[in-house]
């Protein structure tokens, strides 16, 4: 499961993993702003952004292909709009659209692959992001695992009873319905367990680390690099 792998990646020990989540989140925001405002004609700039990301992935000791493959999941969505743009005759804009969505996905993925969930949601909270939004992110993340596991078990059970012969739309709709009911039940159980251990609507971060000079330096370097590419290329 994708999020299990990313969860494992986020527990690494590289220098990028050790940077404060707030610094990484700020760097991501700068990267996204700079990327989204880059002109389609500035193709060298996109190449430079990609190189910056490759360097970051390499320094985080993460598998570049694994990360790129997961980031490519955004392409079917953006490719639709890119194709429409291409058909309207603006090839460069279509290309830039696909590049921007892929690089954005890659950058966001790099953040979550080098920062545990509790770290980057705590960073969001420190930025006064709406608490409800943070709670939704945290619950979705946890329940996603629950639902995926439940779905896998049901699929196995169906396969064991020959679903490959008699399956199809009817079976799929049945599985989805049961999956929804069971997931709701399981999610309810988890919520009860959380309440039983004093949960009051907020995940308390276990170890908020101080913002160090190295974190400020990291952010400054990212800011300078992004601005340099944006202005010069």
């Amino acid at each position: 499961m994708h999020h299990l792998v990313i969860d494992r990646w986020s527990r690494g020990s590289s220098s990028l993993h050790q940077r404060d989540p707030r610094a990484k989140l700020a760097a991501l925001l700068v990267f996204l702003i700079v990327l989204s405002t880059t002109r389609p004609a500035a193709q060298w700039a996109f190449a430079a952004y990609a190189i910056m990301l490759i360097i970051a992935v390499h320094s985080a000791r993460l598998p570049i292909l694994g990360l790129a493959g997961r980031a490519a999941l955004v392409l079917p969505f953006s490719a639709t709009f890119a194709l429409l743009t291409w058909w309207s005759g603006d090839t460069l804009r279509a290309l830039a659209l696909a590049e921007k969505s892929f690089l954005s996905g890659m950058a966001a993925l790099l953040l979550v692959a080098t920062t545990p969930l509790t770290g980057w949601t705590a960073a969001l909270e420190s930025w006064r992001a709406p608490r409800m939004l943070i709670l939704v992110i945290q619950f979705v993340y946890r329940y996603l695992f629950v639902i995926a596991e439940q779905a896998q078990r049901m699929r196995w059970a169906a396969v064991c009873r020959g679903s490959h012969k008699t399956g199809g739309f009817r079976l799929a709709t049945g599985l989805v319905g049961v999956l929804f009911a069971r997931s709701w039940q399981r999610a309810d159980g988890i919520y009860h367990a959380m309440l039983a251990r004093g949960f009051r609507g907020r995940f308390v971060p276990a170890a908020p680390a101080p913002f160090r000079a190295a974190d400020a330096l990291f952010f400054s370097a990212c800011l300078a690099g992004c601005l340099a590419v944006r202005i010069l290329l």
Binding site: D7, R11, P116, T118, H192, M194, G198, F199, A206
Partner: peptide, 28 residues
Amino acid sequence: FQDSDEQLFMPTVLEDVAFGPLNLGLSP
């Protein structure tokens, strides 16, 4: 709880066990 999977919801064992004490107001 009967099903431990319902009770263990944090990313690591240490964080999961610290969940309750943090909610009680203990320092990290």
